[in-house]
Structure formats: C-alpha cells, structure tokens
Design a binder for these strands. Structure first.
Lengths: 142, 142
DNA sequence: GTGATAATATCAGGGGCCTGATATAATATA
DNA sequence: TATATTATATCAGGCCCCTGATATTATCAC
C-alpha cells in the first residue's frame, strides 16, 4: 500500500500556497478584484506602458489568458490600452486614475497579508525563507 | 509608485508551488492523469472506501468539484463506487485493479519529484522546510 | 525589395474549480 | 412519531487558465 502523502514537502508547499491564495482572494474581494487582476494593476503601477505579451510573461500566464484579464480591467475602466505610435501591432496598457487608486488600495491590503506571512517565518529569517523558495523553484524548473 | 513585488515572500511561494505543479503535471501526463486525479488515487490507495465528501475534504476542493474528478476516474475504470450497505446515501469509492496499478506507477513518479524538491532544501533540512511551510500555512488560515 | 520568420493580438473551445440550488437519506429534537 | 436539521450526492452555470488556430504587423535573410 502506498505511503501517506501528508508528511511530504511538496504537499505542504501546496497547502501553504493554497492558503495564501485564498487569503489574497478574500482581501481583494471588497475591492472587486481577484489576484490576477491585482497582479496586473501592481505591475502596470511599477512599469507602465507594457504590452499584453509582456504582462502575460511576468504573470506566468499565457497571452490568451492575459487578454481576458486586460479586457476585463478595460471594461472596469481601471486600465486603458493605446496603440504604440511606433509599432502598428503593439498596444500599450497603463493605469487610469481609477486604476491607480485601486492599485494603491489593493497594494495596502496585500502588504498586510505579506506581513502576516513574513511574521510566520520565525524563528527562520525572511531572507532564509525567500532563498529556500528560490531553491525549490529552481529545482522544479530544471 | 508601488514597490516591485518580486522580492516578496508570497510571490516566491507562489512561484515555487507553480513550478512544482507544472512538474507534477508533466510527470503524470504519460500516465494520462492530472494532479487532482493522482491525489484521489493515492488517497484511495492509502484509505479505501471513502465517500465523495471525504475525498473532497482531504483534497481541499468542494464536493461538487470532486464529483467531477470521481466521475472521470469511474469512466476510466480506475475507481468504482458502491452503495454503502448501511447507509442509503453514501457511495464508497475504491480503486479497481487498474486503478491500483495506476496509483503505484504515479506514486513512483511523484516520489521522484519529491526527491528533487527535497534535495533543493540544502543547506536547510527537510524537516525545517516542512515546519516552515506549516507555519506559513497556519498563518494564512488564522 | 521580397519572402520567410517572429511577435503580437485575439477568437474558439475545453478543463478544473468555484458558488448556488436541489434532491434524498440519516440523524437530532420536540 | 413527526418535524427540523444535517449529511451526501449531484445538476447548472460561471470564472480562470489552458491549448489550438488565425490575422496582422515587424523583423530578418537573401
């Protein structure tokens, strides 16, 4: 008979991320956003005028999926897309004033979640935890 | 302007789990399984005769979602469900012989992934990494 | 310059998980 | 016993992300 999976590291990693995702969803719900939408707003806040393809790559989803996210955010008037003047195909996305306000509000909520997460690393250090995550990520990507 | 999110622990946690999930998907693909289906087979291998509700709770998905997973596994003749003789509503799921063989094969693949993951914790210990994940999980569930 | 290749956006369809609603059987309670 | 509550299964519809396919524009190779 196969051994019980619950003590395994991969299982715990999944559990922790799942709980984080739920927590983020709950925190963003009052703002009318989901984690993917928040990620786009935060990214455009940090680096305006990115293409759909750029945003998809940074968010680790396909351009087709990001297309849907951007279309939704455009419909909510949080993001606007304008033709790149020097490129007939590219459309550069940026935050509207409403989008900027929403991004700031959402970021405050996400920072609160991050603080709770970082507090839980004790007695490890945040840097130690970050390094560990990076090693796990690297091992799974090789 | 909002700070860049990439150095944050939550972001790294998401990345690591995402990579693990992809790795599991790839390893299971030749067997015709996805991670959710594997989780059910492994669970039924460890503890046969569970209800849809039991399995859903252990897998952290809704009974409605598990219903779809079980229906699929039944269609593949990897799982069978029988009426609980002492309970008119419950249906107890168990592995078929094919399901058992598939569970064993999948488990071997998953163990290989787990080994790669655990090797990456160095210079930390596996137990230290597991404990960290548990603390992060606990902090996100409170 | 012309044709091949790559980049970009976007449509169509599918899979997995979700919420809401419903039906049925077991269990608790009056 | 009769009724209310709980547990279980399951249908319907929606959201998010996926793959595949297509159109259009840039860019590269010759």
């Amino acid at each position: 008979m196969t051994k019980d999976m619950t003590p395994l590291l991969g299982y715990r990693l999944k559990l922790a991320q799942h709980a984080l995702h739920r927590r983020m969803e709950e925190a963003l719900k009052p703002l009318g956003l989901n984690p993917a939408q928040y990620a786009v707003l935060a990214e455009l806040n940090a680096r305006p005028d990115q293409t759909n393809a750029d945003l998809a790559e940074r968010a680790f989803i396909t351009p087709q999926s990001m297309q849907g996210v951007l279309a939704k955010l455009e419909g909510l008037r949080l993001v606007e897309r304008r033709q790149d003047v020097r490129h007939g195909r590219r459309q550069l996305a940026r935050l509207t004033p409403d989008g900027y306000a929403k991004a700031e509000a959402a970021n405050a909520e996400m920072m609160r979640v991050e603080e709770v997460l970082e507090a839980a690393v004790h007695p490890d250090t945040v840097q130690g935890a970050v390094d560990l995550m990076d090693r796990l990520h690297g091992a799974m990507c090789k």
